Simulated assay, not measured.
Amino acid sequence: MSLTLDHIVIAVSDLDAAFTDYGRLGFTVIRGGEHANGITHNVLVVFQDGAYLELIAWKRPDPGMRWSEVYHSAGEGFVDHALLPTAIEADVSAAQRRGLDMEDPIPGGRLRPDGERLEWKTARSPGSDVPFLCGDVTPRRLRVQEGEVRQHANGVTGVAELTIAVRDLGASLRRYGALLGSEAGGGVQAGDVAGSPARFATLRLGNGTAVRLATPDGSEGPLASALAARGEGPFSVVFRGGADADLDPSLSHGARLAISETRL
């Protein structure tokens, strides 16, 4: 299975402010619209490699929904990531056969500001260390727009690396491997993650994005703090293209983002 990164979800408190702030960071930001549940709405940053950032805000709390609970307890920042399946029903069945506790696909949708209605199916595991799958029912170009919206003033062309904070590296490697149908490349390493000692292993997705699963060695440092506050899930993103830079977290609404022109 050659799954690719579909999108990364960032919770924000004020969608209009996030729209403006990400523009100030050099991104081209587009209005996404309102989800079918009437509770959330979003704006998007779409990249040339086909992945995108979803900045999502709540019109009212959504008790029992993990994203809402993470946001309302820990504030703005990452809440999830998604992969794009080849055929969602078949890909979910294959992952389930390999032992992943992934639920069957369920329908979802969103109404764009221009009136275009989008439909998709998602499938999730209860554990947030692994991504959910998001497969389009309507053409993907309606959900993930093409053309000039993928050009960014800061030069970013895609997602080079996504680091996921996990509690049990071995267990998460097995779970992520069951989803992808592959083993982690390079094995477990020890090193520095955001200035703190950690152990990590890297998998590579179909579009070249490296996913680094990382667990902190100890209870101090940004990785351990994020894990304690937000639970397992995305910790940082490194974009490819543009000049090397750490992006201002006050403008990125709590998301740890960086650009590296040398990342392939």
Score class of each variant (00 low, 15 high):
residue 4 T to C: 12
residue 8 I to W: 04
residue 8 I to Y: 07
residue 9 V to C: 04
residue 10 I to K: 05
residue 11 A to L: 06
residue 11 A to Q: 01
residue 14 D to F: 02
residue 16 D to H: 09
residue 18 A to D: 10
residue 20 T to L: 13
residue 30 I to Y: 09
residue 31 R to S: 11
residue 32 G to F: 06
residue 35 H to F: 05
residue 38 G to S: 04
residue 40 T to A: 12
residue 40 T to C: 12
residue 41 H to E: 14
residue 42 N to L: 02
residue 45 V to C: 12
residue 48 Q to K: 15
residue 48 Q to Y: 14
residue 55 L to P: 03
residue 59 K to E: 15
residue 60 R to D: 08
residue 61 P to T: 02
residue 64 G to L: 01
residue 67 W to G: 00
residue 69 E to G: 10
residue 71 Y to A: 10
residue 80 D to C: 06
residue 82 A to M: 14
residue 83 L to G: 08
residue 93 S to R: 01
residue 97 R to P: 06
residue 99 G to P: 06
residue 100 L to W: 04
residue 101 D to N: 14
residue 109 G to M: 05
residue 110 R to Y: 06
residue 111 L to S: 13
residue 112 R to M: 09
residue 113 P to C: 07
residue 117 R to E: 14
residue 118 L to Q: 09
residue 121 K to Q: 03
residue 125 S to V: 00
residue 127 G to L: 15
residue 128 S to R: 12
residue 130 V to T: 08
residue 131 P to T: 02
residue 135 G to Q: 11
residue 137 V to T: 09
residue 143 R to N: 05
residue 145 Q to E: 14
residue 146 E to K: 13
residue 147 G to T: 03
residue 148 E to G: 11
residue 150 R to M: 09
residue 150 R to P: 04
residue 154 N to A: 11
residue 161 E to K: 12
residue 172 S to V: 11
residue 174 R to Y: 12
residue 182 S to D: 01
residue 182 S to P: 00
residue 183 E to R: 15
residue 189 Q to A: 12
residue 195 G to W: 03
residue 196 S to N: 10
residue 199 R to Y: 12
residue 200 F to V: 03
residue 200 F to Y: 09
residue 202 T to D: 14
residue 203 L to W: 05
residue 204 R to Y: 06
residue 205 L to T: 04
residue 206 G to Q: 11
residue 209 T to H: 00
residue 210 A to L: 06
residue 215 T to F: 01
residue 222 P to D: 09
residue 223 L to R: 05
residue 223 L to S: 03
residue 226 A to N: 06
residue 230 R to T: 05
residue 233 G to T: 05
residue 237 V to M: 09
residue 237 V to D: 03
residue 242 G to P: 03
residue 244 D to Q: 15
residue 248 D to M: 09
residue 252 S to H: 01
residue 252 S to P: 10
residue 252 S to T: 13
residue 253 H to A: 06
residue 253 H to E: 06
residue 254 G to I: 09
residue 254 G to Y: 05
residue 256 R to G: 08
residue 260 S to I: 13
residue 260 S to W: 12
residue 264 L to D: 14
